[in-house]
Design a protein around this nucleic acid. Structure first.
Lengths: 219, 219
DNA sequence: GTCTATAGGCAGATAGAC
DNA sequence: GTCTATCTGCCTATAGAC
């Protein structure tokens, strides 16, 4: 059951790219290490983490099985690197989308729309980081959870700003933020390339749905 | 990394129970077959489908590895039976929740709230049927997809009824139905027993969020 | 840093006795 | 219908040469 459309290098690179000079980001990776990560993303997306063999990753990267272990201590560490970089990149995109918006409504539309589109365009990486989470070690799970909380926080902050400005009406900020993220994250689960919905259409539609969910009712 | 709270027999039984006399349902299963399904659900929930061994399933069911193959042709067929029964049960719950409601608003609150609560209470089975889908054979994927479309239809029908009655304002019925289901299904991904949110609170909150998402704005 | 070779173990599924 | 025993193959990870 191979993935219908293999990940392109550009696809994953855009999602796990080194975070530039931002403090707190991870260390840069060598060319070979990046090649292995791309190969692993491809293999995990096609078969899931437990069913993926190190032989498969190695051959996709043009290495012998042993060659992988020079760069990554284990298959699990490879999954962790993809998860960490994917989450960090998604968080950065959210923060950037919320910046320089005139009001909370525009900010919310931008971040939920953009996050939804990201989960369509990068649905294979999205499935890896969302659905293979349990296969990380306890320590690595904790580190990724920290990044997830940062992402929750970006959305919650926009909601609070909108409530304060009188644009939104929200009963429970944290639960509403979670529901908004659920809508976007779940795109990675059901999205199929070439289907009825394009990533651009998803961005527009889901941005509007987000605003509808929190808008103040005029009575 | 075992599951923190093993599935109880009651938990899964409530979700995969034989569908009674309803036409189109699957055949009944023997006591031993049910015991094996419960064991498999427990094991899949704890370790995921590919990482689960037939030996693990067998020992949880109190059988030798070979004993499983008398009742199920393969590990994949076991996953399929759980998926089929889980989806069918969820669909039935939705249909029942929508029945005998005075208006579309009440119906939508009931089905989205109920579906969300189901994904909290049965989050382990929910993860199996939602996240292990790719490991089904093509034929079995197609059969489960048919059940998913029925579920989509129940929600879409309520939305259309609400629009016709002037209760709702919905741009794109199918996309909105999908987004509502996404909110509910994603509960299975993040829910942890004993966390801040109880299944009952999730039912109430998500039912209200659903209504907010589609209510007609009064201007 | 990459290779070949392999250790050491476990997988899914089956044969045949009872 | 269930068992014990086993086939056949593949797995992750490592040792040691180059």
């Amino acid at each position: 059951m191979p993935s219908p459309t293999p990940l392109t290098e550009t696809d994953v690179l855009a999602a796990i790219a080194p975070e530039g000079g931002r403090p707190g980001g991870g260390a840069d990776a060598s060319d070979t290490a990046v090649r292995i990560m791309l190969a692993a993303a491809d293999a995990f997306a096609a078969n899931g983490f437990p069913a993926t063999t190190t032989r498969d990753i190695a051959s996709r990267a043009g290495l012998s099985p042993a060659g992988v272990y020079v760069h990554f201590a284990s298959k699990e560490v490879l999954l962790f690197e993809l998860s960490r970089r994917g989450h960090a990149r998604a968080r950065d995109l959210l923060v950037e989308a919320a910046r320089d918006t005139p009001d909370a409504t525009t900010a919310l539309r931008a971040i939920v729309g953009g996050f939804s589109r990201w989960h369509a365009e990068h649905h294979q990486l999205g499935r890896i980081v969302q659905f293979e989470f349990r296969h990380l070690s306890d320590e690595h799970q904790a580190e990724v959870l920290g990044l997830r909380k940062e992402i929750d926080q970006v959305v919650a902050d926009v909601l609070r700003a909108g409530v304060a400005a009188g644009e939104f009406e929200v009963d429970d900020v944290r639960t509403t933020a979670l529901a908004l993220l659920s809508m976007a994250i779940d795109v990675a689960r059901w999205y199929v390339p070439g289907g009825r919905r394009t990533p651009e259409a998803i961005e527009t539609t889901y941005g509007e749905l987000a605003v509808r969910l929190v808008r103040r009712s005029v009575r």
